[in-house]
Amino acid sequence: MPEPTPMEIPTIQVACTVNGEAFTRDVPVDMPLLEFLRDVLGLTGTKGACLEGECGSCTVLVDGETINSCLMLAAQANNRNITTIEGLASGAELDVIQDSFVATGAAQCGYCTPGLIMSARALLNDRPDISETELLTALEGNICRCTGYASIIEAVKRAHRESQSS
């Protein structure tokens, strides 16, 4: 079977909500959600680094659950509600997790940071109390090459404390 030329990839209409805003776009059926968010919508805060689901850089929330956007097709996001790193801060005010990542120096090169913050967001959304193991498990799919994770753990704990006390 001859390989389709670029122009022959069928497209499909995708209507979804991203960070509260509704979008409708025609996209190639084989386009991953990551590429849709970055190249079609221009939301480049979500990163790609392995495209194998191994590093978690592309983590976003779909209907409140973390997923690896490199492994979901954009077409599968039809009628779904997506939250990316761009959707966390309200105006100039950072989400408490974002603020904690800056405070503890958890963003060094920063490339893994958006994915980690989304994983942490899902964890803190779910749980009023978190154990050390739950924290580590929630972040185990997010690779960081710079920090050795200590400042990241500290950031999530700080964010958890601050959101408990507020």
Partner: peptide
């Protein structure tokens, strides 16, 4: 879930146009 299919696509091992 796409965790096998899309990995293979991203590697260029398969090039499906119908899902």
């Amino acid at each position: 879930g796409g965790t096998d299919v899309v990995v293979a696509m991203n590697h260029g091992a398969i090039k499906p146009t119908c899902f």
